[in-house]
Design a protein around this nucleic acid. Structure first.
Lengths: 232, 232
DNA sequence: CTTAAAATATGATTTTAGTCATAAAAATTC
DNA sequence: GAATTTTTATGACTAAAATCATATTTTAAG
């Protein structure tokens, strides 16, 4: 990670958007911009928490590991998004790891300055609280899916979620370069099983493939597979 | 749920403990105390969010259902604890259900008044943020466990967590009356599988049973089974 | 107190998804 | 651009856990 000053515009990230304009100079004075390369690990589980990060450009995955082999991707952080905020609260080490999936620039804010920011910007604190509430809701829904939904449904759900977050390109393919390995980690299953499920989905005509890209052909049917079944 | 005014002391819950003393009369004026019976559902997934709850006495489980049969218990809320806070953020319906596990009294605060409380009590907002960060961390750890840990480990972890939250009684048994069914839901597995794992743990000498109660005999060994293996 | 409804216990069977093995293709590195 | 590493592809096998079936016990309700 190479430090590279004054890259970000102190305008586009979640913190900058929700802080008082008067606070922006303070942010500019306290931020550190870092250049990351594809595959580079930014922090990992167990590292001491020293600050919070925002993605200026590029894409970051936040994940947890189990015995160096199995990983579970918790979420993807794209431009503007926060990561490392799981270090807040009563713990001194990161409970997750973060790695760049593309070359990019990230913005680092020390915990100290971040806490000052929270104290000064009550709207930001409130927005962050709402963000946490949303994240918690998502996380618990995924817990339920991992406990009770079959892998095929989880893959369907992962694809729907990716399309929602990253959109589609001109040809209708989901706008993210993701390896099958990462898709498996995001679905919470092994590469092989996910591979088979992808094949099934292609055979069912719900999705189609082109090189690494995936296109959803039948969004409704895929959503049904991934459905949040409510009791009537 | 029978409404019953003026039961709680506006002192012991998470909100009361973190608000300005000056705000307590406002809380007293806006709270509603409700008497709940064992098994009673307080709200369920999909119900419109109208407020936030605190447990004054008794015990509440917060859970998610999948097709009316399978449930996953997200957490237990005991005296003083908040629940229903998952309704915050960008959603108008509860993403979880809550039911009383014992007869008790709960305190209800309307969303409107709760939001006013957040605006007035910045310390409370901050503490709530930290609480959310902790919950999120827990939730994501459980996600990882559900994805990669075998059921035996999850049961071990559930028992360790229960002992941590509820403590032990004079004979060393975990101080909670929980059905095997609920233990299964909390471990994210079926009743039958959990039953077998409990048997294995008894045969291994790690725990012992007496009627419905469970005692941890070998906390260390149980923790190893439930371990958060870090990469060295 | 009787009866119905839950919760517990346990074996047998089936399904699902993980593990292993190996080959081809792509991507990176030297 | 040759060599090595990583990712993708796929079949065979195994293990884990869910489902099904059914008996017994306990608890709650009238």
């Amino acid at each position: 990670m190479i430090q590279k000053a004054n890259t970000c515009d102190t305008k586009s990230c979640f913190m900058c958007k929700n802080c008082l304009p008067e606070w922006h100079p303070a942010i500019a004075a306290n931020k550190t911009n870092l250049k990351v390369k594809k595959g580079e690990v930014i922090f990992k589980e167990g590292d001491p928490v020293t600050g919070i990060y925002f993605v200026y450009t590029g894409l970051v995955k936040v994940y947890k590991k189990w015995d160096t082999e199995k990983e579970l991707i918790i979420r993807f952080a794209k431009e503007g998004a926060t990561f490392g905020h799981r270090g807040l609260g009563n713990n001194s080490t990161y409970p997750v790891s973060a790695a760049a999936m593309e070359n990019g620039v990230i913005c680092y804010i020390s915990l100290e300055f971040f806490e000052a920011t929270l104290k000064v910007n009550s709207n930001f604190t409130y927005q962050l609280l709402m963000f946490f509430a949303d994240e918690l809701r998502e996380s618990e829904r995924k817990m339920r899916n991992l406990a009770h939904m079959p892998v095929k449904g989880r893959v369907a759900e992962a694809l729907v979620a990716l399309q929602k977050q990253f959109g589609i390109n001109a040809d209708g393919f989901i706008n993210i370069a993701i390896s099958r390995q990462d898709l498996a980690s995001y679905s919470g299953a092994t590469y092989e099983t996910v591979f088979r499920m992808i094949n099934e989905l292609v055979n069912d005509g719900l999705i189609s493939l082109s090189a690494k890209s995936i296109r959803i052909n039948n969004h409704d049917a895929l959503s049904v597979l991934a459905q949040d079944i409510m009791f009537p």
